[in-house]
Simulated scan of single mutants.
Amino acid sequence: MEAVAPACVAQRTATVLENVAVAHETFRIRLDDPEMARSILPGQFLMIRGGRGSDPLMGRPFAVYDVARDPSGTPTAVDVVYLVIGRGTAALATLRAGDRVTIWGPLGHGFGPPPEGPVVFVAGGIGQTPFLALGKWWLGHEPFGPVETVSSDSPGRFASSATLLYGVRTAALAAGVDDFERAGITVELATDDGTAGHHGFVTQLLERRLERGERPAKVIGCGPPPMLAALSRLVARYEVPCDLSLENHMACGFGACFSCVAPIRQADGSIDLRRVCVEGPIFPAADVVWTG
């Protein structure tokens, strides 16, 4: 499955429409930017610099969570969900409606067209964030981006079902579960401490399904590297198609700094470092090289 090429990138300021808590230390910020809302695709991301003055100096990358629409269905704003883990996200959490932030995007490549059949999203930590928009698109519920991604004239184009397997440290960190369920995406939780759902690794939920003989048309993973490495090994064993959305640390977001490179296997079998911000963030699981 080929990723969708990025649209033209632009840097500008956007007004915060709301910034609300959705879980422990987790927020959803809505940015008034109709141009970004019309152009961004599921899987792409934007950089946000939310501090006042020059601190923090660099922006932070965030996957598009959803696109807000007016009553006519026209895209008007972009939603991002973030976990407070450092100075950049702590600065974002202080913003209120009416504040202005610097943003640039859309960045990276979006996901390719939907497969026909069931799809499974596997998320760890804050890795669920790319999957709400993707699920809406792949299930045929909403269009995204500058091209028509939903068409009632093409039955059978879309995924038959979507399931989110979502792993967090503790139940208080599970963010947006209601959003996914309202979008028709089934959610199964796994927690490290057993406070909700399966007590253990989120990859174990997928392994159970595969052991029962279930065969997803596609698996998509996003989360911390150890989880993605385990997911890659699992889907390889069962020969299930899988793409990964990598979360490598980024400084610039447009390929100049080379801070986000990942070792990716090439068609000739060689391994080369690829910039996640420009050539990703989505790569076939079989092409990502994990060490250790």
Rank of each mutant, 00 (worst) to 15 (best):
L228P: 04
C260Q: 06
R100Y: 06
P225L: 05
S245K: 04
V119M: 09
F201S: 10
P6R: 09
A90W: 04
V261H: 13
P130L: 05
L134F: 11
A77S: 14
V78T: 14
Q128A: 13
R275C: 03
C222K: 00
G50E: 01
A217E: 09
D193I: 01
V289M: 12
E181C: 01
L83T: 15
W290E: 00
E2S: 12
A68D: 13
G105I: 03
P113K: 12
R233D: 13
L17V: 14
H199Y: 10
L57M: 14
M250W: 04
V235A: 10
N248W: 03
V80M: 05
V202Y: 02
P263F: 10
Q128V: 11
L165N: 06
S72W: 00
Y166Q: 06
L83D: 14
Y238I: 00
T291S: 14
V119E: 06
F258D: 13
R169C: 06
G59S: 06
D99F: 05
G200V: 05
D268I: 10
G43V: 10
W290M: 00
S151A: 15
G98L: 04
G184E: 09
A183M: 05
T94R: 11
E116M: 06
H199S: 11
A7D: 13
T102R: 13
A37L: 03
F258L: 13
E207C: 00
R52M: 09
E148M: 11
G145F: 04
G105L: 05
A183R: 02
T26P: 08
V261M: 13
G221L: 09
N19R: 03
A91W: 04
G255S: 05
G269M: 14
N19G: 07
E239N: 14
A236I: 09
R208T: 15
L165P: 00
A285M: 11
E18Y: 07
R87Y: 11
D32M: 02
S245M: 10
A285E: 06
P118Y: 08
A175P: 09
G167K: 01
G194C: 03
G50M: 06
T203M: 03
F201A: 11
L189D: 07
V261A: 15
P115C: 08
C242A: 15
A21E: 14
L83F: 14
T89G: 07
P118L: 09
Y82G: 05
Q128S: 12
V16C: 05
